[in-house]
Design a protein around this nucleic acid. Structure first.
Lengths: 227, 227
DNA sequence: TGGGATTTGTACGTATGTATA
DNA sequence: TTATACATACGTACAAATCCC
């Protein structure tokens, strides 16, 4: 527990807090020691520990609830969303095309998911298609009365990614969807066209025609890849 | 100078610093104002500004050099690597399979890249294949004398991703490669087999047979997806 | 070579907002 | 409502690293 006063960069304190989490086998949602206890555990002052917590908070490794305590975070893709979104906002000028790249990634994810969906056995596929159809219908209804359908849109693509049977890929699908939404024009919720393309995707998937499904997904993203 | 005591959460200060970067059109590597100047610019104390900087640092949006200054960061995928790696380390016990998911993502990325590679025109493809072959050969040589080939391994998959013509996808390929390496057993640099599968991938790509290339990539990752 | 200026890193004290009992 | 525990915010002082003259 010797403090070793020199050579302790901020990153070292971060590492030690990570070690505390790992050593105590803490799971997401579990409470961390209080700040003062952490100070003793890692041998640093409150300021340093607080900054380390802020770092880990940015990485979503811990979560802070004001007046309540600090807890192990969900370790989500949120930091990725923030970072790429900010990068996208920056190169408005040079037009290096982060937004186009984001749309491309989404298209690839959806197409891979579509292929996996068609490979599911009949019963499971039917259930999934039903839920997807319900979401597409909701989007259509909401668009009809000019209401935003962001939640449903997100849920659709997240559900579509389930056949991939890979939590990381699903998280990436959600993350890039969020980035896409954040980079879209603020008031651009005119999603009557989007609702239609989603219905088309479900219909293509129901038909079982792989080529048609790929084309439907491509058509969904096409206007954003050219314009 | 009344600080408007309420309503200024840490996240707000972070946002304001981001705005400073965006407003001044700063590019990666450009210097930010000093901490004290930032305090005035965003209207917060140095402690708060420092915590915000720490947050942005964790996201690789800024980079801090002690005694020198604060600079706009490279906005890399490093935070993603840290997060997923940490998550992978945590579920050693329950074996929920983060590592398997990482390998799966890599395989999908490489297979997509392989397909894109075969779609390149002859000259460009030939050049790329040459460089890939050279890297594979280097890996073989290094493995033969028991030397680590981490750099070459990374370079191989990064180069392979280039035909995708998508910087984000290439970054993801690099990031998941790094995660994979970090989660591998520490002394597990026994890469004589890895070198061979890389040679096989290049040979399959050279043959122009799409199916064979997909199989070669699959064979590269197969042992990690079953064991 | 060396010292001074600049900038970030660390520590501590104090007051305040917030949630729980 | 009160009391307690905790995070939040600010300010100040000093230490350490880097640069420049």
């Amino acid at each position: 527990m010797v403090p070793a006063v020199t050579g302790r960069r901020p990153q070292d304190v971060v590492q030690r807090v990570q070690d505390v989490i790992a050593r105590n086998r803490l799971r997401p949602g579990d409470p961390l020691p209080t700040e003062v206890d952490l100070c003793e555990a890692v041998g640093a002052s409150r300021s340093s520990v607080r900054e380390a917590i802020r770092t880990l908070c940015a990485l979503d490794l811990v979560e802070v609830r004001h007046g309540h305590g600090t807890y192990v975070g969900r370790m989500s893709m949120d930091p990725l969303v923030q970072r790429v979104t900010f990068r996208g906002r920056l190169d408005r000028s040079d037009g290096s095309g982060v937004r186009r790249e984001v749309v491309e990634v989404r298209q690839r994810l959806d197409q891979a998911a579509g292929a996996a969906l068609l490979a599911l056995d009949g019963a499971e596929r039917a259930t999934l298609l039903e839920r997807l159809a319900a979401l597409a219908q909701q989007m259509k209804d909401l668009a009809a009365r000019g209401a935003p359908a962001g939640q449903e849109h997100r849920a659709f693509h997240l559900l579509l990614s389930e056949p991939l049977r890979n939590g990381l890929l699903s998280e990436l699908a959600g993350a890039f969807g969020d980035i896409d939404a954040a980079l879209a024009a603020p008031g651009h919720a005119a999603s009557s066209r989007a609702a239609l393309t989603h219905v088309a995707i479900v219909e293509a998937a129901t038909s079982g025609d792989a080529g048609r499904l790929q084309a439907a997904v491509a058509a969904h993203y096409a206007p954003r890849l050219e314009g």
